[in-house]
């Protein structure tokens, strides 16, 4: 049996599944209970599972994430929501200083199997501090996994894996495509593995790598290009990175374009370029191209669209790489 679901509905369904499957699962955050979340990701969960398991918290990001560390250490599977990725920085301390290190510093005695979910990214005409994509910064934290789905099917399967994972996972949800399309999603419980990329299109001429909301801009650009046979890879997990899928593809095509929404300098594309340099340099027929956000804060809505890598920029980079 399947259901025709958007990403947000698939996330809601995954939470519903795991609250039912495992008593240790707790969902909490700002406005997740009574109102069902500002994006409705937790709609109906409090009604179904009660206030003890689906709980509105006072307004404090660092307390939400820090308390998750304590709950996870002592027997629970917390799924904390941060309302917008722009509000994670106050809680970053707990992720980088505590959640990600507890296993290492206690030699495996204590662990923090917790998930922090948050909508990220630009493109919904949101307010200041509601549009950031800081995945590269989070990927730089040893001991923290970073997952970014781009489809309803993956959102559900990856979220279930994240909740079950023995280590802390930051689950970044591309809010720009929360409701922009539907697809068939299996009912019931299933998982998609963390740390495995998906090949969305097979091709011979050039490898195009992306994730999250930019996956859809990338596919749009690729579909409009005439005469270029693109292989498109959706990373799905930023950390740990599936280097093998990327490297094998680049060895085949000899060319690569990476597309992300975050600023260019220190962006995750840099890690991919370095990986290709390490493992497939001699296969390259052109420099690896990056299509990214600019090294500026995400502008307010009047200029926001100039910031986002739109299909014309992506297409231009692919053509340049192929014609090199």
């Amino acid at each position: 049996m399947t259901m025709n679901a958007t990403i947000i509905e698939a996330i809601n369904d995954a939470l519903h599944e795991e609250l039912a499957n495992d008593d240790r699962t707790l969902v909490f955050g700002e406005d997740v209970g009574q109102s069902g979340g500002v994006f409705r990701a937790t709609d109906g969960l409090q009604e179904a599972f009660g206030e003890e398991r689906v709980r509105d918290t006072p307004l404090s990001e660092i307390a939400i994430v820090g308390a998750a560390v304590g709950l996870a250490t002592y027997g629970y599977r917390p799924v904390a929501e941060i309302q917008f990725s722009g509000f994670l920085p106050p809680a970053f301390d707990q992720l980088v200083t505590n959640a990600s290190r507890i296993r290492w510093r206690t030699r495996g005695e204590l662990t923090a199997p917790m998930t922090v979910r948050m909508p990220y990214g630009a493109g919904v005409r949101a307010l200041e501090h509601h549009s950031e994509s800081l995945e590269a910064a989070y990927s730089h934290v040893p001991g923290l996994k970073v997952v970014i789905p781009s489809t309803p099917h993956d959102a559900k399967g990856l979220l279930l894996s994240a909740i079950r994972d023995p280590d802390p996972v930051l689950f970044m949800e591309p809010k720009h495509v929360y409701r922009s399309f539907r697809e068939e999603v299996p009912e019931g419980t299933y998982t998609e593995p963390l740390g495995e990329a998906a090949v969305r299109r097979e091709g011979e001429d050039v490898t195009v790598v992306s994730w999250g909301a930019m996956m859809h801009k990338t596919l749009e650009a690729v579909d409009e290009l005439d005469g270029v046979d693109c292989e498109v890879i959706d990373l799905r997990t930023i950390s740990p990175l599936d280097r093998r899928t990327v490297v094998e593809s680049v060895k085949k095509t000899g060319r690569c374009v990476v597309v992300h929404e975050a600023p260019k300098t220190g962006g995750f594309a840099s890690e991919l370029v370095a990986t290709i340099n390490d493992e497939a340099l001699l296969y390259l027929e052109a420099p690896v191209e990056r299509v990214t956000g600019f090294d500026v804060p995400v502008p307010l809505l009047a200029m926001e669209d100039y910031y986002i890598p739109h299909p014309p920029r992506i297409a231009a980079a692919i053509e340049e790489t192929v014609d090199f």
Partner: peptide
Amino acid sequence: PRPEPEEMFNNVFAEMTPEI
């Protein structure tokens, strides 16, 4: 009027970096 796209790159730093 909507700001010119160039505006997006101004005021990140006192002096625009070569990369920007």
